[in-house]
């Protein structure tokens, strides 16, 4: 197939490119001079303490905020690198609900709490023109199975779900259109440790099965260690250290990173 040939060639080229990215609110600079390249299938963790600019950076990368400086480019499905700021609103929203996923820390933001789980998963399909109830429902069912939600609960609203189930449902809802890039903002925040472990396990499997690229913002170094290939450490809006995950976490160079790593409570 021609498509797969293009995809193979594309693996050598970055999927997302940040160049001198910055955002300031008046005198307050939330995020400064961030540059990196993300390749297809790669998982990048952005770690740092609260207020270090992680979430601002994620919003800049996912085109939900417009940068004060620099630019973000993304390789579209046709292989052309496009500047996100130059996309029209319709294109940007289309990208966000087809080729991208966005997993919020609070599933209430990412789900429609009043409609059933099946419709939550099916919404993206209907948004791209699926018009066959049976097929939408079959796809939703298979995705609930993949994220280990009891299929018998497909017609229940996520209101009635536990925190861990809501988060898994949010992941299914995002992955149903087979995106190539998923943004995750503290995906395990607010979940207890055993549920976290299960969710991380699930995400790691999905990411490797689907060959997803992902950008995960987290303050939890364990999440970074389990999920990501590369880590970026942020402090005061700047990237202070970047490298392979085990290299950064086992042999941190910057004093701040050393502090972060040594702050983990021994189990």
């Amino acid at each position: 197939m021609a498509d797969s040939k293009i995809a193979v060639q594309d693996n050598d080229q970055p999927l997302l490119l940040a160049d001198g990215l910055g955002k300031s609110y008046g005198r307050l600079s939330a995020c400064r001079d961030v540059s990196f390249a993300l390749y297809p299938g790669e998982v990048l963790a952005i770690v740092g303490e609260s207020g270090s600019g992680k979430s601002t950076l994620l919003q800049l990368l996912s085109a939900q905020l417009s940068p004060s400086a620099g630019k973000v480019s993304y390789r579209m499905r046709d292989g052309v690198m496009r500047d996100l700021a130059a996309l029209g609103e319709a294109e940007r929203r289309f990208l966000l609900r087809t080729d991208w996923g966005y997993v919020h820390q609070d599933p209430v933001l990412g789900l429609r709490m009043a409609v059933s789980a099946g419709a939550n998963v099916g919404e993206r399909l209907m948004a791209v023109g699926w018009n066959h109830y049976g097929r939408i429902r079959d796809t939703a069912t298979s995705w609930l199975e993949r994220v280990e939600i009891d299929v018998g609960r497909i017609d229940d609203a996520p209101r009635t779900y536990s925190g861990g189930m809501r988060q898994r449902l949010q992941i299914a809802r995002n992955l149903v259109t087979e995106p190539r890039l998923v943004f995750m903002d503290e995906p395990t925040g607010g979940l207890d440790v055993s549920v976290q472990a299960r969710l991380l396990d699930l995400m790691r499997n999905l990411v490797s099965e689907l060959g997803l690229a992902a950008i995960v913002v987290t303050h939890d170094l364990a999440v970074a260690r389990l999920l990501s290939h590369r880590v970026m450490v942020m402090k005061g809006g700047r990237v202070i250290e970047t490298g392979l995950t085990d290299q950064v976490l086992d042999d941190p160079r910057e004093p701040y990173t050393q502090l972060l790593v040594s702050s983990i409570l021994p189990a």
């Binding site: 409609v115 993206r124 209907m126 948004a127």
Partner: peptide, 22 residues
């Protein structure tokens, strides 16, 4: 209003989906 402007009507089918599911 934005959804009307951009012709994003997937949500309307979510309502019909809910009817059939229920």
């Amino acid at each position: 209003r934005r959804m009307h402007a951009l012709g994003e009507y997937g949500l309307m089918h979510v309502k019909l989906y809910e009817d059939i599911a229920r």
